[in-house]
């Protein structure tokens, strides 16, 4: 009887049962392995994700060539990672991520420009957030402050600081390290310290 509580036992048993080019239905497999139909279906889904299985008809399975090789090699299916992660990692949809994309497109920008491009109705105080973010990026040399300013409109306003993207390392927005002098660059996968003044 297959241990029903071990996450890898049922797929491993299924892999071995189907070896040799057999094509069996869920009912036959459930009888042979003493599993419920649901457990057979879940185990089959596990093998399908690994490209070890073909679904010949509804509820009828046969091993692929890769599956046959794995069965011959006596592979034990476990619940752990299946190797290195080749697929892309999702870029988080945050205000700072969107602002980083906008910086890339614009090249030169003010805080209001970034707010206009990156903010969504759910953002609390985007201007304040982005000002702090730009301060962090500037300290690490990723953004430089240009000598001229965009004209302000308020009385006695000194205008808006004009920034330029100085270092673009990739699409993932760097994050400002809390309490430390620097940023973490997810594209380079390392911390970048502040440039000493």
């Amino acid at each position: 009887m297959v241990d029903r509580h071990h996450p890898g036992k049922a797929p491993t048993a299924l892999l071995q049962r189907l070896s040799g080019g057999l094509c069996l239905t869920i009912d036959q497999l459930a009888d042979d392995l003493d599993l419920t139909n649901r457990q057979v279906s879940d185990a089959a889904a596990n093998l399908l994700r690994r490209d070890y299985l073909d679904r010949m008809a509804l509820g009828c399975y046969q091993l692929t060539e890769a599956g046959e090789q794995a069965a011959r090699a006596g592979e034990v299916i476990t619940s752990g990672p299946k190797g290195t992660r080749d697929s892309h990692q999702l870029v988080r949809n945050t205000l700072r991520q969107r602002a980083w994309s906008a910086m890339r497109v614009r090249g030169q920008f003010t805080v209001p420009d970034l707010v206009s491009d990156a903010s969504t109705p759910g953002d609390g105080n985007p201007a304040d957030n982005l000002q702090r973010y730009l301060r962090g990026l500037k300290s690490a040399g990723y953004v430089v402050e240009l000598p001229r300013r965009a004209a302000g409109t308020k009385m006695t306003s000194n205008g808006f600081k004009l920034f330029a993207l100085n270092r673009y390392t990739g699409p993932k927005a760097p994050s400002v390290l809390p309490g430390r002098n620097g940023i973490h660059d997810f594209n380079l996968r390392k911390d970048v310290p502040c440039i000493p003044r």
Binding site: V91, N93, Q97, R98, A99, S101, A102, R104, V105, R106, D113, S116, D117, A118, T120, P171
Partner: peptide
């Protein structure tokens, strides 16, 4: 053009 695209790229995470 740039303002429109900047907004669209930022909001959709598209490749620029």
């Amino acid at each position: 053009k740039t303002t429109t695209l900047s907004r669209w790229v930022a909001q959709t995470g598209s490749i620029y």
